[in-house]
Amino acid sequence: MSAPVALAPPHRLTVEAFLDYGEPDRRYELVRGIPVEMPPPAERHQVIIAALFHLFCRAIAERGLPYEVLQLGLQTEVDTVRIPDGLVYRKADGRGGSDERRSGVVWLEEETVVVAVEVVSANRRDDYVVKLEEYARRGIGEYVIVDVKQGQVVVHRHPVVADGVYGEVRVYRRGEAFVLEGLGGAAFEVGPLLDGKTAGELAREDVERLRAEAAARRNAEVRAEAERQAKLDAEARAEAERRAKLDAEARAEAERQAKEAERQARLEAEARAEAERQARAQLEAELARLRAQVQASPDDTSTS
């Protein structure tokens, strides 16, 4: 992308006047009252921004964050409006009314911006120095610079508003992932961005990932159901074995009781037989005694 072109209006513009400046199909920034035309971004530039928008939107959706990701004008000073390559912000309800001009600018008094992104193009000093100071003074929580030429992503955090600097600066390269606190600690791989992976490719990867996760979830559910069924079968077998054991014990007890009843009956029969034998013996003894008496009676008569 070629360098921005500063225009020389008859006098410096206020932000309100700037909203009506220029032509609809051209982009302008206002830099300390001077409108600056922004040339159309190169294809690589747009690919990176589209990929970042996709990644940011996914992170926002996954975490349920109340943010939007757009490319809007951002008032950084009283007479300055920048157009960052990307803004993550909390939309301010009811601000700007129905004025379509104002709806495209995040205003200075609104503390709504969470992350600002710039993809380095021709004028490196603007991204690394000038805009950095403006974004820090604006109080933007995190400022991300994607620098393809240097093969790095630079994340600035914790703005010191009074000094126009950031308290923490981290540099990430290929093979690493940069983390954004403003997006709930979401991490984004540097390599795919620098290598020009498109939003479409990332979306297809997301679809494949979701399909794989859904398949894994279904497989896990099938395994869980199989395990549950196996557990139920095992419990049913154990219950059947327990009942069979109880039935066997009941049959054994019944057999034992039957044998005991037979033994008792036998004992009772033996007792009755013994009683009868004893009664018979007593009767025989009594009969023998009586016969003896009968036999002895004639002798006694003759003697007398």
Rank of each mutant, 00 (worst) to 15 (best):
D93G: 00
F188K: 03
Y128K: 03
I145T: 05
V171N: 13
N123M: 00
R174A: 14
E142P: 08
R101T: 06
L132M: 11
E118I: 04
H156W: 02
V148I: 15
D99W: 08
E111K: 08
R95G: 01
V119N: 00
G139W: 05
Q152F: 09
A136I: 01
E100H: 00
K91V: 10
S98F: 15
G184E: 08
H156I: 03
Q150D: 15
R95S: 13
H158L: 14
F178R: 03
R170L: 14
V106K: 00
R125S: 11
R138C: 07
V153Q: 07
S121E: 03
G182Q: 03
D163L: 14
G167S: 13
V171L: 07
R157I: 07
I145N: 07
P159N: 12
V165G: 09
R125V: 11
D147Q: 09
R138F: 08
E189G: 12
A177D: 09
F188C: 01
E111T: 09
I140D: 04
G94N: 10
R138I: 11
G184W: 05
G104F: 07
G184K: 03
D93V: 08
L194F: 08
R90L: 12
V190M: 06
F188M: 01
Y166I: 01
G151P: 01
E134C: 00
R173Q: 15
E111S: 11
P192I: 09
Y143C: 10
V115W: 00
D127R: 00
A162F: 02
I145L: 11
K91L: 11
D99E: 15
V160A: 14
Q150Y: 08
Q150E: 15
H156D: 02
R95Q: 05
G151W: 06
K149S: 14
V153C: 10
E133T: 13
R90H: 06
V155Y: 06
V105C: 10
Y172R: 00
G104Y: 11
V129K: 00
R174E: 15
L194E: 07
E100D: 13
L183F: 04
V120P: 01
G175Y: 10
K131G: 01
I145D: 01
W107P: 06
E133F: 07
